[in-house]
Amino acid sequence: MNSEVVVSVDGLTKKYWSYTHAAYRLLDWISPFSRRHGVEREILSGISFELRQGQAIALIGDSGVGKSTLLKCIAGIIESNSGKICVKGIMCPMLQLKGGINPNLSGRENIYYLAALHGFQRGLVSGQLAAIIDFSELENKVDEPVWTYSSGMIMRLAFSVYVHLKPDILLIDETLSVGDARFQEKCLRRLHDLLAEGVALILVSHNLQRIKQFCNQALWLDNGRVKMLGDVNSVVQSFESHEVGLGLTSAVTKSLDV
């Protein structure tokens, strides 16, 4: 393991203020005293892990344990309350492919728009434009407005943008099912190539098969805490046997995940 650490998370804690009614929140905002009407809920506590170049880590766990919140904290979308997050290089959060697409603009303009939304300058996109359009297989359709596209085409466009912006770290939240089976295969191959080129991946997925295929590490989150962190096979195995313990056979979980 001589490659550089690109993401290091140390003791990350995230809390939300929770109110029974929004009016109480407003009251607390303008009151001179400390918050008296809200309850602070801890969503994530003491999360620590490291990710190196060319490696992929999977965040697994049941729904609502804070996987997406953790991803958003790492991406800098929401602020964590304590703990350190160190990111080296350019990070690209691929949290929802359709988010950010502007249906009124053409496909070509959307490429620039999506890149701008992630803080990438126009110059960098222009150099990659041909490759992006080529990868998305949109051909002439790229100059038509996006509201005329099928949902599969929008996904293809967005995915192509993200993987061509040369990020150092990609954050992926359940976005791997893109378009038809053939294009999906192409995307997965592209992700493998990126990994080989040294891009680091953080993946949130319920598809354990795919996780084993991509990741070398896994982090099992339970109730906002790290339950297990380590080699992907052993973590996934423990997670599966835990699910079996809950009364779900692994066959059932697998078919649900597809």
Partner: peptide, 9 residues
């Protein structure tokens, strides 16, 4: 909201 939930802008 859909953009602000997904990017760090």
């Amino acid at each position: 909201a859909n953009i602000l939930q997904k990017t760090s802008l």
